[in-house]
Design a protein around this nucleic acid. Structure first.
Length: 178
DNA sequence: CCCTGATTCGC
DNA sequence: GCGAATCAGG
């Protein structure tokens, strides 16, 4: 795969949207996260709202020649592991937040087909955020990695849990009078 | 262990 | 220019 204008534009969009390099790589397909990161740097759009202090890091030079990656040891990109399916745990909700029940997610939220999970491939470390209409054949789960005991990946945790402080007391309604 | 981005350097 | 290998960190 080469970096066509379209792919570069999508890369820029996703990167600025805050997606991780591996997520973008999965979205684009045909490239690894390293390729994405490399491209991001070449495009000069690295460092998005990150640390600004540690600018100078005495990078340690690589030993010498790479252990010869020969030519037969590079599948494609890192994929979520698929070990034995184990019990699902839908608990672990932080105390000071309210959980928002996953609803049918709009098309905007897409997960690369290669990373999607079905009820059969979910493990205790895969994101169980449902995507699509449960009654539809296109229904699937996010499937990205999540911490053990946590039902969703980092991304969907943000979506699922909303700080209580953000919840608006429903008393700012306007004069209801009568 | 999983992941993240950053960097180097052979190609 | 590209990206695997590697580093450094969470």
């Amino acid at each position: 795969m080469s970096w066509t204008n379209e792919r570069v534009e999508l890369l820029k969009k996703l990167w600025t949207d805050g997606l991780s390099a591996s997520q973008i790589a999965g979205e684009l397909g045909g490239v690894t996260r390293n390729a994405v990161i490399g491209k991001v740097h070449r495009l000069g759009l690295s460092g998005r709202a990150k640390t600004a202090a540690p600018a100078a890091k005495p990078r340690k030079a690589r030993p010498a020649a790479a252990p010869a990656a020969s030519s037969s040891s590079r599948p494609a990109s890192a994929q979520p592991q698929t070990q034995g399916a184990t019990a699902l745990k839908m608990d672990a909700e932080p105390a000071n937040v309210i959980a928002i029940k996953p609803q049918i997610e709009p098309v905007a939220e897409l997960v690369p087909i290669s990373e999607r999970a079905t009820i059969l491939t979910l493990t205790e470390r895969t994101c169980k955020w449902p995507i699509g209409d449960p009654s539809s054949p296109d229904f699937y789960f996010c499937g990205r990695n999540s911490d053990v005991g946590v039902p969703y990946c980092a991304h969907h945790c943000k979506v699922a849990y909303q700080p209580v402080s953000d919840r608006r007391r429903s008393n700012d309604r306007k004069a209801i009078s009568a």
